[in-house]
Structure formats: C-alpha cells, structure tokens
C-alpha cells in the first residue's frame, strides 16, 4: 500500500477548519491533493480507455483512506467533499495546463504514439481551461453559484449533497445550476455577457 498521510492529522485539520481555522485548510489542501491525484491516476491507468472516472467514488475512497472515521462528526464529511471538489478542479486544471504546454512544444518534447491518440479529443484541455476562467469570473459576481458548479461538476456531488454542504435548499441548487450553466455555456461559445 502506498504511503498515506496519517489519518488523525487529516481528521484534526478537518475539525479545525470546520471551526473556522483557515490555516488548517492550507495544510489540508496538499495532503488531500496528493491522495486524490494518486487515486485518480491509478484509476485511469487501471481502467484506461472506455471507462469513466467516477469522481464521487474517488472522493469517497480518499475520505475512507484519509479520515479516521471513529470520532468524526458527520459535518466534516461535507467539508471534505467541498475541499475535494475544489481540489479535483485544480488537479484537472493542472493537467490541462501541462497538456497545453506540451502541445505548444514545450521543451524538447516529442509526441508519442500514445499521446497522439489522446489528441483526438477535441482540445479537451483548452476547453477546460476556458471553463475554469469563466468560473473564476462567475465567482466574482456570484460566489455561491460558482461553488454549486464546482461541487457538482468537479466534485461529482448530487443536488442533495450540494444543498447539505452549502446550507441551501435543493430547489435553490437546481436554480443556481441552471443559471450558472447557461451563463458558462454562453461564455464558452464565444459570446460575451458584458
């Protein structure tokens, strides 16, 4: 089994964060990042083509592995999912950036056959980076809607779970999502709202 951060540390950090200690988040972030990233890569290398990556399953597994579940208040779980959604976003964006870098011919890189296969994807990485940018603009106008998008699209949470994390009703989640998604679509398809 791979090295993993001590459970109680994560558990403590989660508790501290929930109690409002923001620096706990700073410590939590890299730990969870590494775990999620590792799991995601492992899933993908195992399943390869034709399989989808189940974000929720991934985060659940990270949760089970990272958090000492003996004395954890349930509320910590929402916090864990919230940070995980944020981190999944970051992981994917990081990968997309590297992908773009590679495509620009960064360094002495040569494109291998394997990679040529993934290039068939219609500029997935560019799309993702644009979405990320649009989501940042959305966050400036409307932080809650951008969070809903993050939790749902990057964290794989369903409406009920999102409602729990953000302390809003499920109906509100649905409405937020509709609006945010329409706006993001508009941004990505090139027209501007401004």
């Amino acid at each position: 089994m791979a090295e993993k951060p001590p459970q109680h540390e994560i558990t403590q950090l989660l508790a501290q964060w929930r109690e409002g200690n923001q620096s706990a988040l700073d410590e939590l972030y890299p730990l969870v990042y590494d775990e999620l990233h590792r799991l995601a890569r492992r899933y993908m290398s195992r399943e390869r083509k034709g399989h989808t990556l189940q974000t929720t399953a991934l985060i659940n597994e990270a949760y089970v592995r990272l958090v000492d579940q003996r004395n954890v208040p349930w509320a910590n779980r929402s916090h864990f999912f919230a940070i995980s959604a944020q981190i999944m976003r970051r992981i994917l964006i990081d990968h997309a950036r590297r992908h773009q870098y590679a495509k620009r011919g960064g360094g002495a890189r040569q494109v291998s056959l394997d990679e040529a296969a993934t290039v068939v994807m219609p500029d997935q990485s560019g799309e993702l980076l644009r979405l990320d940018e649009a989501l940042k603009s959305l966050a400036e106008m409307d932080p809650r809607r951008s969070q809903v998008v993050e939790l749902r699209y990057f964290g794989g949470l369903n409406n009920e779970e999102i409602a729990g994390v953000l302390h809003i009703s499920e109906n509100t989640v649905t409405r937020d999502w509709n609006m945010a998604r329409a706006w993001l679509y508009q941004q990505l398809s090139g027209s501007t709202a401004n």
Binding site: L53, T55, L92, H95, L128, Y153, F154
Partner: peptide, 10 residues
Amino acid sequence: MAAEAAAPLL
C-alpha cells in the same frame, strides 16, 4: 462530470 471529460488528460 469534469473528471470524465478530462480523464484522458490524467
């Protein structure tokens, strides 16, 4: 979900 769409990147 994003991860599905972006899976090949990973």
